[in-house]
Simulated assay, not measured.
Amino acid sequence: MTTITLVRGDITRQQVDAVVNAANSSLLGGGGVDGAIHRAGGPEILAECRALRASHWGKGLPTGQAVATTAGRMPARWVIHTVGPVWSATEDRSGLLASCHRESLRVADELGARTVAFPAISTGVYRWPLDDAARIAMEAVRTTDTAVTEVRFVLFGEDAYTAFAAQQR
């Protein structure tokens, strides 16, 4: 059984096996959580991301998929990069957002990670409404068969924390 915990804080400082990065498809860093993870982890993360782009993910990581690299200088052992969907008022992309969580847990299982920290994927620059993102994320984690023992949602602001807390049962 997977325990779901919520914390307000900085995902780059979490003492977990793996941190999930809300990456962009290039895997080469960006803003928000992605930029913070690349800055905190140092050049080792970028080097492994470049190697991934040079091999299997030459066109970038597709939305809803996940892949792992080292966590570099962060306390975690691995970073699991996943590309969240951009929110759309005219197209239901909730399956892609759920896939980010399921695929990240699948990669965690392949790595042997037992504790995983997630951000609120797609809720920043990708504009996914917090309440809906929290509902999709929590449901995806609850219904995914995984050996991960703790999923920790690390939420940067009070609004995100409140949205995720409303989904806890």
Rank of each mutant, 00 (worst) to 15 (best):
G60Y: 13
P43C: 11
M138S: 08
G41R: 09
A113P: 02
Q65H: 14
G84K: 07
A47P: 00
I37Y: 05
S104H: 01
P62Y: 10
T12C: 14
P129V: 10
R127C: 11
T5S: 14
R114Q: 13
W128S: 02
V79A: 06
F118M: 06
A140Y: 02
R152D: 01
G124C: 12
T146P: 07
R13I: 07
P43K: 15
P62M: 11
V33A: 12
A47G: 01
L52R: 08
E103M: 10
T5D: 01
F156Q: 04
H56N: 11
V154M: 10
S55L: 11
P85E: 01
I136M: 10
T2F: 09
C49K: 10
T90W: 08
G31L: 04
D132A: 15
E139P: 01
G31N: 07
T146W: 07
A147H: 14
P75S: 04
L130K: 15
V107W: 05
A113G: 08
A22Q: 01
M1Q: 12
V154T: 15
T146E: 00
R13A: 13
V148E: 00
Q14T: 11
G84A: 02
T2H: 12
R169Q: 12
T90C: 03
H101Y: 15
A140W: 02
S104K: 02
V83G: 04
K59T: 15
S25N: 12
M138I: 15
A76S: 03
Q168R: 15
L130C: 10
T3E: 10
T144C: 05
A66F: 08
A89V: 14
I4E: 03
R53F: 08
R135C: 03
V141F: 11
F153Y: 13
R73F: 03
A117H: 07
E48P: 01
Y126E: 00
M74C: 07
A22E: 00
I11M: 06
G42T: 05
T2M: 14
E150Y: 07
C49T: 06
A134W: 02
A113I: 09
W78N: 00
T146L: 08
D145R: 15
F153R: 02
Q167V: 03
A160S: 12
I4R: 10
R73Q: 08
E110V: 02
L97K: 12
G58L: 06
G41W: 04
S99H: 11
P62K: 14
H81R: 09
G29P: 05
D17H: 13
F118P: 05
G60A: 13
M1F: 09
V33K: 13
P129R: 05
V83H: 03
L111K: 09
G157K: 15
G157S: 15
G32H: 09
H38G: 09
W78S: 06
R73M: 05
V20K: 14
N21I: 08
C49H: 07
W78V: 00
L111C: 06
A165C: 02
V16T: 13
T69L: 10
V16C: 11
A22P: 02
I121L: 06
R73P: 00
A120P: 03
A68W: 03
R50E: 09
